[in-house]
Design a protein around this nucleic acid. Structure first.
Lengths: 353, 353
DNA sequence: ACGCGCTACTGACAATTGTCAGGAAGCCCG
DNA sequence: CGGGCTTCCTGACAATTGTCAGTAGCGCGT
């Protein structure tokens, strides 16, 4: 259930609006002035903020400002509710970075539409979201709603990709960005000796290859299906429009990229100075956390030794030797290509030391 | 000199405006309709676009749309010029992602101010910009102009940092983000064995440590001065507001991060499978490209063997051995800590193979 | 079910890289 | 200008990791 923070000083208005939202099955947090609103937002990090402009203590502009300056709350979609419909006011609101501006009085449907639209778009870039094709359709509708000019309706096709088939090659021009509807792929680069280095594993609900778009429109890596997959192809322009147009999506994207950079740097540090043994432990934990069938139980991950080796950045044989060591020590268990973690704690200790 | 693309169908209006801009020392590209405008923008990538809304062929909304969907032009600040002042029109323009909206007729000063403001803010995140403290002041004015609420005027101080002094430690809470006014610093992480891995070298005109802000507000690495430095401390909220508020800055930031990710991944690939020799060649070229006193001549870079080793990700002795090899082969020359590249081509060949 | 092919695994050995120790050279500082 | 410190460099050796070759075992398709 989504949580909405409603900041409104007028008690009647507040209760009325809250009621509408609750009927629409949102959890509603209420605040009677800007200062309280900011406090609540910081503590609870709602999924969306509705905010009046004229309020005692701290006005709506102030609230937007305070929230926008904190990374945790900056990405939360923000909608102004105001009785002021004049050009200057509306413009000021939007310029400050609000995502929408509703003038009172508004229809229930207006309000709910505005909220839903925001939440849906915003949703896409949550990490680990689990919307399958339905979510994609909504996304496509949004992306298309953005586009009043071109008729791109025909591109909403999906493509079946067989195991081992390549989705795109390094250097391919990506006119369409693949979105994983079902299945898993690995992305990797090949160095001059022909050795592969796996840069990522991706499952349903993720875009792949978008990084290349931002650089030069060409794929930076090769993507290959690890199992039979279903892939939707999103026209690159739609994706870019989405990333660039909405403040909240942009911010979330920035944070995602920053996270990516951070992970990469940790990986670098590991590769540079950690032993194969440590790197293997690290990789096992990462892969397990991402793709284990069952997170809680120490159930297995299906991955070939070769792929795992090229995540670790070592020769396949070295990896295998390391795995057998770990197996003998009772940290993991292997059955064919299935690898199960038996003692997560000791493995973590090994990885980070 | 900055280039401005002016898209306006009315010939008088176009010539008048162009004249004003040329007097203000901008290079002006003119287009008489939207379609032409988009063509010119794609070919020349101006620094800013001024665009009328009502035009034949393709209207202003369409132009904004087309440009916004192409990564190369999306980051260019975009200002609407329109005779339509009604609420709906203005809002539509801003919502589509314009950076400003001027209603005709406008004063010369209005126009020039709007342009200048945009360009200045936008300027900060150009890679390799060379504005020293003057640029910073302008930036601070902008950042402060954004802020109508808090009085942060007192924080515009700079700090002198002596050689070898630490600017911030990994894990420090960064309430202020350092901006390099003068000098060089290195940023590095320390692994559990106490070994350092250099993640970056930064010189004048760069922010350092901002990555941590986006994650959890804490520094992800340690920054240490390589020489006597002057550092300005920007309140983190100002920086965040700047990054988040302006569409063009956000987009540029996204691209910067994406570039970062790409570089990191190349680095990963190198570390994983390239020999020390190749990695050294790579590192030399990177460091040289970034910090050589003179780019053209094969003049030297001053860097300690230890630092270079921890960029390469190897033991200091291994690095030194490699350097002496390269020296014997006539690829480089060393004099004390000064390293000069003698044969860039062969070094490049070595690095990428 | 059977064979083919691919992947997992093991052993022996080579190559690379790290570690330790020690001397030479350079640099800072009074 | 000399002492003390750090940094650069070299040698010998150890440890880690990669390579090659060969066997076992699993899975897949006809």
């Amino acid at each position: 259930m989504k949580t909405i923070l409603l900041i409104e000083d007028d008690a009647d208005m507040r209760e009325n609006t809250a009621e509408i939202l609750e009927l629409a099955d949102y959890r509603v947090l209420k605040a009677e002035n800007g200062r309280r609103g900011v406090e609540v937002a910081r503590k609870e990090t709602p999924d969306l903020v509705l905010c009046d402009i004229m309020m005692p203590e701290l006005d709506g502009y102030g609230v937007l400002h305070m929230l926008g300056r904190n990374p945790a709350t900056a990405e939360v979609p923000f909608i102004f509710l105001s009785a002021k419909a004049e050009r200057g006011e509306v413009r000021k609101g939007m310029e400050l970075g609000a995502d929408d501006y509703l003038t009172k009085p508004f229809e229930e449907s207006e309000l709910l539409n505005a909220i839903e639209g925001r939440l849906k778009r915003s949703e896409l870039f949550r990490k680990g979201f689990d919307n399958g094709f339905e979510g994609l359709n909504q996304f496509m509708d949004q992306a298309r709603g953005v586009d009043a000019l071109k008729d791109i309706g025909r591109d909403r096709k999906t493509r079946k990709v067989a195991k081992k088939e390549v989705v795109f090659h390094e250097g391919d021009e990506l006119r369409q960005v693949p979105y994983m509807v079902h299945g898993k792929v690995r992305t990797f680069k090949i160095n001059n000796d022909g050795k592969e280095f796996v840069t990522g594993l991706h499952g349903a609900g993720e875009f792949i290859g978008y990084m290349g778009l931002l650089e030069n429109g060409r794929a930076m890596e090769t993507a290959e299906a690890l199992e039979d997959c279903e892939v939707a192809l999103i026209p690159r322009e739609d994706l870019l429009a989405l990333l660039y147009k909405d403040r909240d999506v942009s911010i979330r994207f920035i944070k995602m990229l920053a996270h990516n950079v951070k992970e990469n740097e940790q990986h670098l540090l590991q590769l540079a100075y950690a032993s194969v043994r440590q790197r293997v432990a690290q990789a096992l934990l990462r892969v397990h956390g991402r793709y284990a069938e069952d997170q809680n139980a120490s159930l297995g991950v299906q991955i070939s030794r070769e792929d795992l080796a090229s995540i670790v950045g070592t020769a396949t044989e070295s990896l295998i030797r390391c795995l057998t060591d770990l197996k003998e020590e009772g940290l993991i268990d292997t059955k064919g290509r299935d690898i199960r973690i038996l003692d997560k704690q000791r493995l973590e200790k090994l990885a980070h030391n």
